[in-house]
């Protein structure tokens, strides 16, 4: 009986904790934009150079791995789709299937997961270790708003660099599909690429871009929230990093499903 009560109690506690953190993350999002607009007035300027630095570390540096995986995913899709479509004698449709599924689904999802692993973990570790070493308190007592200094720059950086990563990933994934498909379809790579872009409509590209911005926001907010909640020193930082990656990938997958539902008509 006591065990059961304890379990119920734990569940309740975890729910409260989760809701508290969700609220905290919302607050971070709101505060970030408040300081983006009001910052100049209160000497809480956003440093452009800081945003550029984060665009490099979160966007540009992620480019090689994003492109490599996009290429592989494109090839993988071509292999599977040609196999499935052959049953109907509809191999030629592989071009359409790859172009649509890559831009709407695969490239935002793959990119989101990679960036969550890189930047989400980095943000959680950075803010977490700064919480532990009192650096956040130091910012606070100096009169520097931590959100403005630690959350807003990476948030803007990802909102800017995620869509750019997605566009690059789209192109490379379609190219990957082309590499495998051209022999089966008996067409040149350049013709395949041109045809692919012709079948795409604005809505396909936009769906990927909208998703990517949402994923970017999720990654920064989850990373920062877990970082600010770190307790227990170095061990806590390690845990926060893991939590940040797992939670942000889960949120990304859920958000992806919801966005697909509403954006696909």
């Amino acid at each position: 009986m006591t065990k059961l009560t304890q379990k119920v109690e734990n569940l309740g506690q975890m729910t409260v904790q989760a809701l508290e953190r969700l609220g905290f993350a919302m607050r971070l999002f709101w505060d970030s934009f408040y300081w983006l607009i009001a910052g100049r007035k209160y000497k809480q300027r956003l440093r452009f150079s800081q945003v550029v630095k984060y665009i490099k570390s979160e966007g540009v540096d992620a480019l090689p791995i994003v492109l490599m995986l996009a290429l592989v995913v494109g090839m993988m899709l071509a292999i599977q789709l040609i196999y499935a479509l052959e049953a109907f004698g509809a191999e030629s449709q592989v071009l359409l299937a790859i172009a649509k599924s890559v831009t709407r689904e695969f490239s935002p999802l793959i990119t989101g997961i990679i960036v969550a692993g890189r930047s989400g973990a980095a943000i959680a570790a950075r803010i977490g270790s700064q919480t532990v070493s009192q650096e956040i308190d130091a910012l606070n007592v100096m009169g520097v708003v931590p959100v403005r200094y630690l959350v807003l720059p990476p948030l803007l950086a990802l909102i800017i660099s995620m869509p750019l990563l997605i566009i690059a990933a789209d192109i490379v994934a379609i190219f990957g599909g082309a590499l495998f498909s051209v022999t089966k379809l008996d067409m040149s790579i350049s013709a395949y690429m041109v045809d692919s872009f012709n079948v795409l409509v604005v809505g396909d590209i936009m769906q990927g871009l909208i998703k990517s911005v949402v994923f970017g926001i999720i990654i920064v907010l989850v990373g920062a929230t877990t970082g600010f909640y770190v307790t227990n020193g170095a061990e806590g930082v390690g845990k926060a990093t893991t939590t940040a990656v797992v939670v942000s990938i889960s949120f990304i997958v859920f958000a992806d499903m919801i966005a697909s539902f509403f954006l696909t008509k």
Partner: peptide, 17 residues
Amino acid sequence: LKLKQNIGVSFQSGALF
């Protein structure tokens, strides 16, 4: 925030960035 600019704090651990 403005008031804090007239206050300096030296932390036990230093809290250097």
